[in-house]
Simulated scan of single mutants.
Amino acid sequence: MTPFADYLFQLRRARGLRQHEVAARLGLGAAYISALEAARKEPPSPAQCSCPRNSGHSDIVKLLMLQPV
């Protein structure tokens, strides 16, 4: 596991969120969140984050810092 993958997993679990809940909040697929946490995918670069649907890793972390809904 990469440091980002581990951090994403720990943060999501601490917030009591499931992968599909994070995915829905970001407009992404749960498989993508799973791949990020398993380090099968690299977080997107800022250049890839030009629209809200393609949120970058900083957006994912910011979202997970919010309280669960």
Rank of each mutant, 00 (worst) to 15 (best):
S55I: 13
R53N: 10
L17S: 03
E37I: 00
G56T: 05
N54H: 14
A14E: 14
A14L: 07
K41N: 14
M65H: 13
H20W: 08
F4T: 12
Y32L: 12
G29M: 07
S45H: 08
Y7P: 00
A30E: 15
D59A: 15
C49W: 02
R25P: 03
A24M: 07
S55T: 14
A35K: 13
T2I: 02
L64F: 06
A35W: 09
A23C: 03
G16C: 04
Q19P: 03
A5M: 01
Y7D: 09
C51I: 09
C49V: 05
L17G: 03
Y7A: 10
A35Q: 15
E42M: 08
G27Y: 06
G29K: 10
S50N: 08
F4Y: 13
H57W: 15
L8M: 13
Y7N: 07
L17K: 09
A35T: 03
A24L: 11
P46S: 08
A31N: 12
V69E: 14
G16N: 02
P3N: 07
P44M: 01
D59Q: 15
L8K: 03
E37P: 01
S58E: 15
I60A: 13
L64D: 06
P46E: 12
R15K: 15
R12C: 00
A14Y: 03
K41V: 10
S50F: 04
A24D: 14
A35G: 11
Q10S: 09
F4K: 09
A38G: 06
L36M: 10
H57R: 14
G27A: 06
F4R: 11
A39L: 05
K62N: 14
Q67L: 13
P3L: 07
T2E: 09
A47P: 00
P3S: 09
A38L: 13
L28H: 10
